[in-house]
Write a protein that binds this DNA or RNA. Structure first.
Lengths: 335, 335
DNA sequence: CTGAAAGCGCTTACAG
DNA sequence: CTGAAAGCGCTTACAG
């Protein structure tokens, strides 16, 4: 069906499209008679007029669309962020286009291209390894952009980030104080700086403590996380682990690891203590309540949208970074 | 910055915009010299030309945007669906705009309005109670639309749905065969037909079986699901439940309920058996593996996008419904 | 083989 | 108080 346009209204009302446009946009300055206004509103109502934002976009070069690229929208962490971003964006009149990169730089590049074609006013991205060039190109074109969750080395992008290194150090110190015989860091085999920061923070704290303690790093790929973690935990923990701490650097890893502890009947926190990054409702189903690092997701979303909106409105063109603090929520999985 | 347009290319190449447009869109019929073609492609490349889909949209009345409205994108179930929809949509050249309704008909209406203004080519919606009128209006305007997960009474919309009633009956029969003393259905206090179908299916099967068995319905609101379920389970299960089955009609409910069993140390499946609708990775952390009804999410997404695309392309204007079957995945939470 | 021109649905500076 | 007209970046039927 053909949708009603401003032209239809003008024709029916017997005025010009300009007048209709002025009235519908409630422009001051232009003084239109109350009578005409009323007539126009009535007609718009009855013929079910819906403004065509596309036409408006073309005119004023603002689509009111924001592109969001995450690794995978079905991941708890990202869908929570997406939800908060959606709310914040809506408040400023933006709607969200989403795409999942699957950690694939080609797909990431394709999504930026697609979004760019769709004329999004800006993008919020969780960059993948190998996407430096694509992002640099966007920045060079001064495309409004803000990173979230992640950041890349060797390229300076505006973004909101967690104090990964610092919170990793603090939380590792928290663990160290408890005098475990063995501490195991479970992370990703990755080049992504935000994850490496967690790992290095962990390692630095252990080293600094000067404690004579056994540590292991279990680093897994992105495929078969569960299988890999379970196999490696089996080796490192052995049959009868005692006085050991597990430090998981993400909720996905934690779920995989906890599942193993569950199956093998290893007691938390009696035998093994557990600390994890990020929340997930899954923790509710584990016998012990999990001590975790809480990321301020809502605040992150708020700052990200804010930062982006400022770039879009030209208030700011600098690669401003906002660092937010994680918070250790201590439960009973760490004795 | 000003983005390069087709006009810039034309000017530099010394040809008309029409020629550029033909070349860039690889239109046959128009026969342009290889030389001109090559020149145009080169210029497009060097000045970093990105086509403006907005302009194209205005011209051909196709935005290649699909609107997705779910109850809450941060919900596991919907973010999984969203992921599949994203993939399917991308294959057909569409990108996805998302919005969360929060079960609020006003917000739902606002989102449809917003998406409509953004000229989405069609919408995939999980309708909320009270959104009948808004949806009817869209249908009347023959706006391409398909429902997913949910459906409403008294309005005939194209959509893909689960065989809720049937799978509820079948799975209830599965439970009934096991001769429990008590079976408890945990569902929502709702008017949403897809959930009522599950409840009625359960009730019908129990009745039909003619078994002299105690049944309870625990129906909760949307706020404080956990607290409400836990309080009610406490009353119904008592201190020392035996030979009882719990039938959860969603994964959210199941997580809340399982969390309670966990805390109160009620053994699954020794004392209480559990069956739930939908998966969630959270189940991994529960001591017993949960028997659940698996919805074919990928297939649903596929059919939904297909159905929508057919409407958009005018192949089909009928309110076609596609019903897919749930599958009972039997694990050891049901003894 | 290529171009001039109209048009998609709006906005807005300008004129009256 | 209101309208004619140009323009946003494209596409496409038509003419040559």
């Amino acid at each position: 069906m053909k949708r009603a346009s401003i032209k239809d209204i003008a024709r029916i009302a017997g005025v010009s499209v300009a007048t209709v446009s002025y009235v519908l946009n409630k422009k001051e300055g232009q003084r239109i008679s109350e009578e005409t206004k009323k007539k126009i509103f009535e007609i718009a109502e009855t013929i079910n007029y819906v403004p065509n934002k596309i036409a408006k976009s073309l005119q004023n070069n603002k689509s009111k669309l924001l592109g969001l690229i995450v690794a995978d929208i079905s991941n708890d962490f990202y869908s929570s962020i997406a939800r908060h971003l959606e709310d914040k964006a809506l408040k400023l009149g933006y709607t969200l286009i989403i795409g999942s990169s699957d950690e694939n730089p080609e797909k990431f590049a394709k999504l930026t291209e697609l979004f760019s074609q769709q004329q999004v006013d800006g993008m919020i991205v969780a960059p993948v390894a190998g996407s430096e060039e694509v992002l640099q190109r966007l920045v060079d074109k001064s495309y409004p952009l803000v990173t979230i969750d992640r950041y890349l080395k060797g390229i300076n992008l505006p973004g909101v980030i967690l104090n990964n290194r610092e919170i990793a150090e603090n939380t590792t110190n928290f663990i160290l104080e408890k005098d475990f015989d063995q501490i195991i860091y479970i992370g990703y085999d990755t080049k992504l700086p935000h994850l490496l920061d967690r790992q290095y923070g962990f390692e630095a704290s252990v080293k600094e403590s000067g404690k004579d303690i056994v540590t292991h790093n279990i680093l897994v790929g992105l495929e078969n996380i569960s299988e890999e973690i379970q196999a490696k935990l089996k080796i490192v923990l052995g049959e009868n682990p005692k006085n050991t701490a597990l430090y998981f650097s993400s909720n996905k890893l934690a779920v995989a690891g906890l599942s193993y502890l569950q199956k093998t009947n290893i007691k938390v926190p009696e035998d093994v203590s557990v600390l994890a990054f990020d929340e997930t409702e899954a923790y509710q189903l584990f016998p012990a309540e999990i001590t975790y690092v809480k990321q301020p997701l809502e605040e992150m979303a708020h700052e990200a949208v804010q930062l982006l909106d400022m770039q879009i409105s030209q208030y700011s063109k600098t690669a401003k970074k906002i660092t937010l603090s994680g918070e250790l929520i201590i439960k009973n999985s760490t004795k």
